[in-house]
């Protein structure tokens, strides 16, 4: 009984963690902060997963997420400062910052409002989701839907490699959380971890390739 209470509290904490990290990722133009939020997001995903999966299986997803974050960091660190700003999609927001603090605040308010909209949509979809999958825990449902929703928003606002890959990793994390409610096999964990790592490697390729002058 005590274990169930701990797990329930952890899943609520995890849902709050993934929500706040996904919002921060949406708002922040800084790639370092985005990657920090991505690493924390994987911690949240891990806490959500332990509701359904044994800890060692959940750890594979956590470690693959953290390794992916490091792979992306290595990729973007290999670029010059200007290229880093361009690839991380920070140029639009930095332009706003240079034009005046009030415009920057406005852009943050805009992103927060869209995140709020994403939250409302998630809240309205949650009963439908639990109707389709009755065995689904509410915190897991919320966590997965908010990751998918805010990940889509991030994808919608970006046309640069780094934010696209981070957004896609967020969306796929959301799907992974839902998938773990139905399958807890070793192969599922292995394939999900491999997907995350390969996507990060491809992301690294996409970030660095435009600046490569020699044969890849």
């Amino acid at each position: 009984m005590e274990k169930e209470v701990i797990l329930a509290s952890l899943s609520i904490l995890a849902a709050l963690l993934v929500t706040s990290t996904a919002i921060m990722q949406l708002v922040s133009p800084d790639w370092r902060f985005s990657l920090l939020m991505l690493a924390l997001q994987y911690l949240g995903v891990f806490l959500l997963l332990i509701n359904h999966w044994p800890i060692f299986l959940s750890l594979t997803v956590l470690f693959s997420g953290w390794v992916s974050t490091i792979v992306l960091a290595i990729g973007i660190l290999s670029l010059s400062v200007d290229q880093q700003r361009l690839e991380s999609g920070a140029t639009t927001l930095s332009l706003l910052v240079r034009q005046g603090a009030w415009r920057h605040s406005l852009s943050i308010i805009f992103f927060l409002l869209t995140a709020l909209l994403g939250g409302i949509v998630t809240l309205t979809m949650l009963p439908a989701l639990t109707a389709i999958f009755p065995s689904l825990n509410l915190s897991i449902g919320w966590g997965s839907l908010i990751l998918i929703g805010l990940g889509f928003l991030k994808l919608g606002y970006s046309d640069q490699s780094f934010p696209v890959v981070v957004g896609l990793l967020t969306v796929i994390s959301g799907f992974n959380v839902l998938q773990t409610s139905f399958s807890s096999s070793l192969m599922t964990a292995g394939l999900l971890a491999a997907t995350t790592l390969t996507l990060a490697l491809i992301g690294d390729f996409l970030i660095t390739m435009p600046y490569s002058e020699t044969t890849p």
């Binding site: 994808l155 696209v164 491809i202 390739m209 435009p210 600046y211």
Partner: peptide, 20 residues
Amino acid sequence: VPILSAPGEKINRGVFRFLI
């Protein structure tokens, strides 16, 4: 994805869409 992206050229937005 790497097959579709040539070195030294801007990544095509179609590649992003394909990935997404």
